[in-house]
Amino acid sequence: MLIPHPLLGPRDAQEFIYLGDATLMHRPDATRPDAEAAFCDYVFLRHNPAGVHRELWFHEAGDRSWLVVTRNTVTHEIIGAELACDVKLGVTQ
């Protein structure tokens, strides 16, 4: 597979480490009253869609950036890739 790195262009998927669902970026607020339940969901529950999925990949054998890759889990088509920090800071999207 090829991942279109936003800074480095197309890179082989072997350079990356896969983490999973990009919702991991939304770590719950530890001060909320139901924090434990929220963390349980955050740590253990994932959507596992057959279709378009936003997921985190780490360019470990490259520039060490975390990417949010949009991938179709059925066809493995890669629809896009953004720097995770840009996504989190709201720079893109």
Partner: peptide, 16 residues
Amino acid sequence: AGVYRQLEFFRQCVWP
């Protein structure tokens, strides 16, 4: 390697 990856995850994905 795992700790470094995890720290980068928190730096870039959670608290950029």
